[in-house]
Design a protein around this nucleic acid. Structure first.
Lengths: 394, 394
DNA sequence: CGCCCCTAGTAAGGCTCCTTAACTTTATCG
DNA sequence: CGATAAAGTTAAGGAGCCTTACTAGGGGCG
């Protein structure tokens, strides 16, 4: 289920009713993006007349969408009454289904987290995982003290791509059985909340764009390096999904392997670091983390493995840069903890590979990027839904 | 000058005046995209009432934006009067500045070419080239018999990227001196037509999307292989430009050269075919065309050079596919004439490089892609301008 | 041939919502 | 305490759309 499902409705005619609601929406959006304001201020900024602003704001207030939040005295004259959106007009749900952790959050319309849970994902089968998601989400909603009916929309982040026609997740290699059809429908049904499913890297990109280091970027790429390899692209504030939702699946980038062509994902993901380290002479129980730690303490084989990893990531960044022309590339995911080691080598290698110079930065949100991206996406629709629901009623 | 320059105006308030103009625009757009229609038909399709449609249509007619184009008898009942946009309400200018040819076209608002000229570009200096553009454009407008004041907008396609701040074209390696500041301003001034400058590959993509084989594609990539190498990307019908207008500059893709990292552009462009052929043992005066011709007649060295070229293009396609997820990739430019030789090898190599399977097709417009893209882009703005100009008057 | 039905298009009246202009309220400044 | 200035309200007027009711015109059918 992608956003296009929602947008498919044929454009409604522009009658007077639409006009009223358009103006109310204009005011609400203004209040959300630039903060509280008085009627007079809104009138000046939007170009609407004062009476119109007053009446629209009154409508919004009786609909429960805005409320007074205080006063402000101008240099001279009567004190102004400030209005702001009411964050409690509705709530949204965000879910991050990772291979190691399941994260769930409930946020109000301001985006403030009202309740949250992080649970280890020990589920071995897809049914168990679905149950875990539903159970955790129920719990979090209960903890938040919010009426479940007020949770109007949810977004789930997972590896792979959701195929709305086949009603299943595809390309989710690292979650066993997760590609079964109907799983999402089942969760939606049991939870009683409309659910949208998106790729985790895409959501992480959106999260980092909305709450993290990507703010204001015109074209922003987030590279998620962990068990797998993925990239999310945010163009002009909107997710760039490609024709089938596969944009940024840089695991499929051609990569010059030694003998045979090798998939880039195999060369860059966490597993590869371990393999490289072993090849350079490290031994024992190795994980990506232990290799990075060893490199940090000067272990030569580990350092070479990290160096190689840097080169490989640089190749990815250079390829993405040539195709997309981002002004910012963020490295995140499992390597987030090791960016201190990787950032410099990646930047240097990129310089040798391409004349393009996108800013390269570490993730600010770290492990929370996917969850916050899910929340941000859910909020977008939740705000629309709440607006329509509340204004339709009166 | 990019589109963003135009969009910067702060959003106007949604008063009733806007509503009227919005509805008129709605009707006009409907007529443009789906063809002539009667008042009653428009009312049904847009959801507006019949009187509203009648009155809006009357406004549009007195503004000269639509006119009657005939009648249609329904199965039963009164015959309907059909209305359609008046193509003569304004005109647009398209220019393709290539290294070998300069092409100029004037089109009416329907997109029909009213006059056109293709001139060899023998200019050695940038000033001479600018003069040639202005002169040819003047000539074409004169030939069209259109009042120059009615040519409301123009778009120029050129290699490189126009930097609106520095008022000059950057990265235009193949046109000597073309990067000088103020050249575009000068042409704009002498011609008296607002000019926009865009990258040629981007315009070719848009052209192929609008008039060619890309129609209806959700995400469409056009690879322009000629003297240089470029790619244009059309996403959801809109040009995808990246943060600085450099998206699709796949000349900068990292490419595993033999010893040193080598720029992909050097490996794929027409020159490279000649080099490869020479390396494989061909001799004499070689051009890309002669190599392809030889390969077509079974010359073994030429065939190997073409094979290599196919591999290299496949690498490009695979990289673009992994990052963008296009549903269609079109090969165009100088190799357009040789696509018969290249298409199969490219498709096969892509299959070995990545699991993604975008449709790969030859350009339908060939050498006209850039010009038609310029025309299409100019039309977008021209239609807006004409609408605003004419409706503001009454 | 005339009646009826059906569709296109017009006319009149009413409703909604916006704007302008004037007014009230409330604060600061001299 | 009056002048000034800004916030906000009230009242009058107008623009644009919709609904209802009508006229215009064309074909089928008795």
């Amino acid at each position: 289920m992608t956003a296009s499902d929602v947008e498919e409705q044929p454009e409604q005619p522009w009658s007077r009713r639409r006009l009223r609601s358009t103006n109310e929406r204009l005011l609400l959006d203004r209040l959300r993006t630039l903060g509280a304001a008085s009627r007079a201020q809104l009138a000046r900024e939007t170009g609407l007349s004062k009476p119109t602003v007053s009446s629209a704001l009154a409508s919004l207030e009786t609909a429960g969408l805005v409320h007074e939040v205080g006063t402000q005295a101008p240099e001279r004259g009567r004190t102004a009454v400030l209005y702001a959106p009411d964050p409690a007009a509705g709530y949204a749900l965000g879910v991050d289904i990772g291979r190691g952790w399941l994260r769930v959050a409930v946020v109000d319309l301001d985006g403030t987290v009202v309740a949250r849970a992080d649970v280890r994902n020990r589920a071995r089968a897809s049914a168990a995982l679905a149950d875990l998601v539903v159970g955790t989400a129920r719990q979090v909603i209960a903890n938040s003290g919010v009426d479940p009916a007020e949770v109007v929309h949810g977004v789930v982040g997972t590896p792979g791509v959701y195929d709305a026609r086949q009603r299943r997740v595809r390309y989710a290699m690292h979650l066993p059985g997760w590609g079964r059809a109907g799983l999402v429908d089942r969760m939606r049904e049991e939870l009683g909340v409309p659910l949208e499913v998106h790729n985790d890297a895409n959501l992480a990109a959106l999260g980092e764009y909305t709450y993290g280091v990507g703010t204001g970027s015109r074209l922003f790429a987030y590279i998620l390096i962990g068990t797998g390899l993925g990239m999310g692209v945010v163009s002009e504030g909107r997710l760039f999904t490609g024709a089938h939702g596969l944009a940024g699946e840089i695991g499929f980038l051609p990569w010059p392997g030694r003998q045979k062509p090798e998939r880039l994902e195999d060369a860059v993901s966490g597993v590869a670091v371990v393999e490289a380290a072993r090849e350079f002479g490290m031994s024992g129980q190795l994980t990506a983390k232990t290799v990075f730690d060893a490199a940090r303490q000067g272990h030569p084989a580990a350092a070479r493995a990290v160096e190689l990893e840097g080169e490989r990531i640089a190749h990815t960044v250079a390829a993405a840069a040539a195709v997309l022309d981002p002004d910012l590339v963020v490295l995140g995911g499992g390597v987030g903890h090791s960016v201190d080691l990787l950032l410099r080598p990646v930047q240097e290698h990129v310089r040798t590979l391409t004349p393009l110079r996108p800013r390269i930065a570490p993730s600010r949100l770290g492990e929370d990027a996917v969850l916050l991206g899910a929340v941000a996406t859910a909020l977008d629709t939740a705000r629309d839904l709440v607006f329509e629901r509340r204004t339709a009623g009166s």
